[in-house]
Amino acid sequence: MTDTTQTTQSSDAGEHYVAPFDANVSFDELQDAPPPAKFKLSITGWVGAIVVGFWLIVAITGPFIAPFGENELPFPDDYSEYQTPRLGDATDPETGEERGFFAQVYNGALMGTDAEDRDILSRIMYGAGRTIGISFVATTIAYFLGVILGIGAAVAGPRVDMIVSRINDAFLSLPSIMLGLVMVAAFGSTIPVLIVCAGLIYTTVVYRLARGIGMDIMVMDYVEAAKVRGEGIWWIVTKEIWPNAAMPLISDFGLRLIYVILFISSLSFLGLGVQPPQADWGNMVKENLGALQYGESIIPVVAPAVAIATLTVGINLIVDDISAHAGGKLSKRM
């Protein structure tokens, strides 16, 4: 080791300074930017994750732990006593006790009963699995078809892409709810029809996303390098494009899931989704809307609406963290 001290000499133009150096140290090329940071949830992201986790547990265990059956009438003999508090019923008519606006109802029906005297809490627990399950399967179908078509259009070249994209544009120009209503009306409001219908309608959106991502990757040099090597289309799609498209597509799944949940709930709300007496959060709002409109009670409407909102907002809080991590690229594609 030889340490050379600094030498200083003065001249008109300024001093000459040499930093101390170790003659044996080589000056390696400086590293490129550090690898992208690991994904971490923010506080709001954690709130979202906890809420979504809660609903997932409810969705799976709901039917087993619900206090009453889906269509069971908890108080068949004398339900007039156990009605949910009415607007203006500030005091209990029997005891004279202050009950307040959101006073809870007794004897196990924690949220009271609905327009047909069924236990709201139990119905929400039954509905959780149905709403989440239908939406999840539908989104999966939409992804399966949309990704195949979208990546396919990106790979197949401008002519195929032009045709498929124009047809896709045509479908996108029609409101999704309208498409849904017509399809369900034609083929019947069964759960399989609902799933296929939502899946097909959201295929158009996933197609556009997958095509965009596929197009971005297609112009990368490494894809061209594979073509120059003589690779077939299968290799290019599965080994070059898919591994790079998978992450952005998967992180967009949550966002699509939100829209599908809202879509299914809206259809149910309009009476063409999940059919009564099966419980679904959307049709629960619809069935009990009268209670709100005539000022009788708010819980039967608020409870299922809040259930959907907490679920979708929870998912969105997670999605927001993911898209912030991905540099906001996802939000641009919305």
């Binding site: 609406a305 909102a309 809080l317």
Partner: peptide, 14 residues
């Protein structure tokens, strides 16, 4: 806006 964008219309209406 993150909250409202994900909430169903009937939730906002309610």
């Amino acid at each position: 806006s993150v909250t409202l964008v994900a909430a169903p219309e009937f939730f906002t209406a309610t």
